[in-house]
Amino acid sequence: MTTASGATVPGSVIELSGIDRDFQLGEQVVHALAGVDLRIASGEYVSVMGPSGSGKSTLLNVVALMDRPSRGRYVLRDTDVTALDDDELARARREHIGFVFQSFHLVARMTAFQNVELPLTLAGIAPAERRARVTRALEELGIADRARHRPDQLSGGQRQRVAIARAGIMRPEILLADEPTGNLDSASGAQVIDIMERLNREQGVTLIVVTHDAAVGERARRRIRMHDGRIVADISS
């Protein structure tokens, strides 16, 4: 078991220290995250588990730069991202982080190809390069023949593979998945997990998976358990 301590470990890509996240619910203040210290090294495979309301999704959103912590320090690859402004955060999300959602979040009017292409388009990359990279990504995930299909013409597993292709298209160092198998049958879920593990193994992507599913969570080399906004267990095998 390793717990976070003071010194910076070389190669750590995510470094959270003293992270709080409070939400105002009416009169009551809910501490979704309370004093979270966490350090994740480059290339790790981490699962985050815990009951509903334990703060695991909030943790993932903070790491994804989608949510700002109320207190604490978050250093992403030597940059203190708690100080970044909105546009800088958007840029950091684009360049460092891929996010896979439980409900896929594909743009319904766009084809699989266009969905995967979207981050490249936002980054202002030229069409020829976009085409080459998207084609390669779709081939790697075995959905090249679905490139011209819209999300509603794809199965759940295929949709999540499109979403993974989109999350990985900018070659981010960090791939975050929030209940990626939550809306899938077990066979498709296994495929999706397999693809993400391959990205971790073969490309050295730091993979963090938030899940309810013990079978999915147990596959990670490092397993974090959360309860009431705190990390209660952090087990590496």
Partner: peptide, 10 residues
């Protein structure tokens, strides 16, 4: 929300 999540600026 998705566009912003994957790096679109305001």
């Amino acid at each position: 929300g998705l566009l912003r999540a994957i790096g679109a600026r305001r």
